[in-house]
Design a protein around this nucleic acid. Structure first.
Lengths: 121, 121
DNA sequence: CAGCGTTATATGCGCCAGGATATATCGCCA
DNA sequence: TGGCGATATATCCTGGCGCATATAACGCTG
């Protein structure tokens, strides 16, 4: 059935501390151990991925991702404890939100059009 | 104190059914009775405001905003009952989310940098 | 010490969202 | 019936975001 997908961004000043894209990136970095591999998985340029990581790191009081240039396998990136917790908290907000406002989401879903607008002019 | 501002968008297919901008626009249309006046208040072009309204209307099974070209004062726009309720539900989701995940927000806030990144490269 | 893969960073280009502008139409009102 | 103000819609242009590309540095490994 038609349903609306909530997308949450946590804004810190002008920057987005974390959002759907950064969260997925964080997860993939944890999984792959490198920024470039994570970027490939998301079909995203390394440049963009690096920028996202940089922004995340600078939004918090300590880095979410630590990197190493050179060394075994050329280097890599690993997620810190804070990174893991930030990611968990972000996910937690989403699930709690879906639960707490289930009735509101149900109402909105029940009034959606039969199909999403394809050609928005 | 430093705090993160949650920004929620409800996506329906490729379109955003409602988000922070559309919600504010909806509110201002209700208040002013016209798309152009609401757009001015938001320092937004009429074109953009009209497109946002059009998208919103097409995302739901009946319009959130009804318009009239010509007539007293040249015409105008008014928010429908559904529009009012969609707006209320959107706000409701935000407040319920803030309550339900207060601890998560508190954690994130407590680990924010001393200032938001100004020059993101 | 040469080679490799990764991080780190600069530069140029292309695309497109959005602004600016122009025009048509509508329906009350003086 | 002409004027007004708002909706409705097309066209042109610009700024900025993101991609592609290029280069340097790094540090293990053979």
């Amino acid at each position: 059935m038609n349903a609306v997908k909530p997308r949450l961004r946590l804004q810190f000043g002008k920057a987005v501390a974390i959002g759907p894209g950064k969260a997925e990136l964080l997860e993939l970095i944890a999984e792959t151990g490198s920024i470039s591999a994570a970027a490939k998985r998301m079909a995203m340029s390394y440049r963009r991925a690096w920028l996202l990581v940089d922004t995340m790191n600078r939004c918090f009081d300590s880095p979410l991702v630590e990197t190493a240039a050179g060394g075994k396998g050329g280097g890599g990136a690993r997620i810190t404890d804070l990174g893991r917790e930030v990611l968990a908290r972000y996910r937690s907000i989403l699930t709690k939100c879906a639960e707490a406002a289930a009735d509101d989401f149900a109402f909105l879903d029940s009034h959606l059009a039969s199909a999403p607008p394809e050609n928005p002019h």
